[in-house]
């Protein structure tokens, strides 16, 4: 029984990390329809910002979360304003452009911050482990789970309960009609992209105490993030959450019973099969065509 609870909590933890990384993409790719291959690099930028604030100003991870969000979001806004906004409705060019941006970011970080792995300190109060239902689990992992759910709730509220969210949804449904009602599509797109980028940055900062920080760290995360969003259903936020936790539990269990190599392969295979028979993903939002 203990082992079962342990494994269940592990799955939740893996899922929460997937959710953290995927939630920004779920806005940018899911809602705005931009295939952003630089998403992983936004995650990486967040981790490096955390490292930079820690080394330069001695800021702890928790206090630097807000500045990290603002900095990476501002950077995302610049990318949207000066690169992507010129590529509206040109998905192939967008893929190439974001890929190029990603490579440039990697090399820029390598040139400025150096190529070696960087260290981000775990907050002191969260560095122990706690007893949950009779099993030991890291406090920091519990914190990540909570953080991912809070960010999800904030995003859901933003999309569904604010005017910005309503305008965004209007633009997604029909840009020209929304524009004729006086919605400034350009501005909303910029803000939304910035928000998604900021979330990615937060994800990078939050996972950095458990993982390593290097210029290439984003490459792995971007794949995970796309897997989660595609499996969950591209336009569904709830789908993203469900799919993150399903993938987390699945890979956790398979990794426990077999090993991580098998888990990775099986999970990918399962996604391919599912997409073959249900291309819209687990949760499809109905959109009037």
């Amino acid at each position: 029984m203990d082992q079962f609870i342990q494994q269940f909590l592990t799955g939740l933890s893996i899922g929460s990390i997937l959710l953290l990384v995927a939630i920004g993409l779920s806005i940018i790719y899911g809602a705005m329809g931009i295939i952003n291959l630089a998403h992983g690099e936004f995650v990486m930028l967040g981790a490096y910002t955390a490292w930079f604030l820690q080394v330069q100003f001695g800021m702890g991870l928790l206090t630097s979360l807000v500045p990290i969000f603002i900095l990476v979001a501002a950077f995302g806004w610049l990318i949207e304003r000066f690169v992507l906004s010129f590529l509206n409705n040109r998905p192939l060019d967008t893929i190439l452009a974001t890929w190029g941006v990603g490579i440039m970011l990697q090399q820029a970080v390598r040139l400025t911050a150096g190529g070696e792995l960087r260290y981000v300190k775990m907050p002191e109060i969260l560095s122990n482990s706690a007893d949950v239902l009779g099993v030991q689990i890291s406090l920091y992992r519990i914190f990540l789970l909570a953080a991912s759910l809070v960010l999800f709730a904030a995003t859901w509220l933003l999309m569904n309960r604010t005017t910005v969210g309503m305008k965004l949804r209007a633009i997604i449904q029909d840009r020209s009609v929304a524009a004729s009602f006086g919605v400034n599509a350009r501005r909303i797109y910029g803000l939304t992209f910035a928000y998604g980028a900021g979330l990615a940055g937060l994800a990078g900062a939050l996972v950095s105490p458990l993982k390593s920080v290097s210029p290439e760290m984003g490459t792995g995360y971007v794949i995970d993030a796309f897997m989660v969003v595609v499996l969950g259903g591209v336009q569904s936020l709830v789908g993203t959450v469900a799919s993150a936790f399903v993938l987390g539990e699945l890979s956790g269990v398979i990794a426990f019973l077999q090993n991580d190599t098998v888990a990775k392969a099986t999970v990918l295979l399962a996604i391919v099969v599912l997409i073959r028979f249900r291309p819209q993903g687990m949760f499809a939002t109905r959109v009037r065509a």
């Binding site: 494994q7 592990t10 991580d260 190599t261």
Partner: peptide, 13 residues
Amino acid sequence: VPLGHSEFSSVIN
């Protein structure tokens, strides 16, 4: 584990 792997919670279990 795969090269570059960074999620060790199942291994730790």
